[in-house]
């Protein structure tokens, strides 16, 4: 009797395992098929094929290396030349992070249940944030370049908009976890909405806001370098120019590569250090 049921349990279990394996295997092979055919399609739609291109992948780094090596002594002066545009790139990122987070704080307070001044606006404000987030920076930047001319301002506005959208979402998630008791206390003594938010919510959530904003700043440095490449000023613009001078003059490009790389690594490390400190201090 017991034997029977053990056997049936075992067979049931094996049956289940087999079915699960079958499904898993089918899903996995479907995935593999999609990946392979996708890559083949992408390969066929490319100007040069993958297998022809793979031996050349280090051609460009080698060219840059060859151009730079004999002029190694000029690198410091190149660094000095391009340092101002690097500062501009960092400024673009910093200002857009600053303005974007201010807008994000406002949007997030309007989009959080329990805090919103006008609860009816929660849905629309969230949709606005979705749209701001979905706008690729490059689009806003290019359109603004058409109107405002080249320079840092189009990039700044473009990145600020995107930052407002993505930080707004993160901030409103932080707000949802905020303790409502200080707000109730403040409203019991007759504080206005602005006072309740400023004195009751912001002090609670500021460390988390700051941590997200720092992370965003790091992302925005990359974004502002890319936008420079399409004409929005900063180091990206210089890189594009240096690249267009062609072979034999890549030493400028090499200097810019190094500057950009160093900047990103420094800010990457800095941001993770600051965020670690914030978290270990009990930010959340």
């Amino acid at each position: 009797m017991t034997d029977m049921s053990t056997a049936s349990i075992q067979s049931n279990y094996m049956e289940m395992v087999r079915r699960k394996r079958l499904y898993g295997g089918a899903a996995l092979s479907l995935f593999a098929l999609v990946m392979v055919s996708g890559f083949m399609l992408a390969d066929s739609r490319n100007a040069g094929g993958f297998w022809q291109g793979i031996p050349n992948i280090f051609d460009f780094p080698r060219d840059v290396w060859k151009d730079t090596l004999p002029k190694l002594d000029q690198l410091p002066s190149h660094f000095a030349t391009y340092f101002p545009s690097l500062i501009e790139t960092i400024n673009i990122a910093a200002v857009s992070t600053l303005l974007g987070s201010m807008l994000a704080i406002l949007l997030s307070l309007f989009a959080t249940r329990g805090l919103a001044k006008y609860p009816a606006l929660i849905g629309p404000v969230r949709r606005i944030m979705d749209i701001l987030r979905a706008f690729p920076e490059i689009v806003i930047a290019l359109v603004l370049i058409f109107i405002l001319g080249g320079g840092p301002v189009p990039a700044m506005i473009a990145i600020a908009f995107h930052t407002a959208g993505s930080l707004g979402k993160l901030f409103s998630e932080v707000n949802e976890n905020a303790d409502l008791k200080p707000i109730e206390g403040l409203s019991s003594v007759g504080a206005t909405w602005t006072q309740r938010m400023w004195l009751g919510v912001i002090p609670q959530v500021a460390p988390n806001y700051f941590s997200y904003a720092i992370l965003r700043f790091e992302i925005n440095i990359r974004a502002s370098a890319i936008l420079g490449f399409v004409g929005a000023g900063g180091i990206g613009y210089e890189l594009k120019n240096a690249m267009s001078w062609g072979q034999g003059k890549y030493d400028d490009a090499a200097a810019i590569f190094i500057l950009l790389f160093a900047t990103i690594v420094v800010f990457d490390q800095l941001s993770s250090y600051v965020r670690d400190r914030l978290i270990s201090k009990g930010g959340h």
Binding site: L41, G49, G53, I57, F60, A225, I226
Partner: peptide
């Protein structure tokens, strides 16, 4: 940055989806 990878890769494979 992805920008630099894009430059290097497009030298090797040409512009396109791949």
């Amino acid at each position: 940055d992805s920008l630099i990878f894009t430059i290097i890769l497009s030298r090797a494979f040409g512009p396109g989806v791949l």
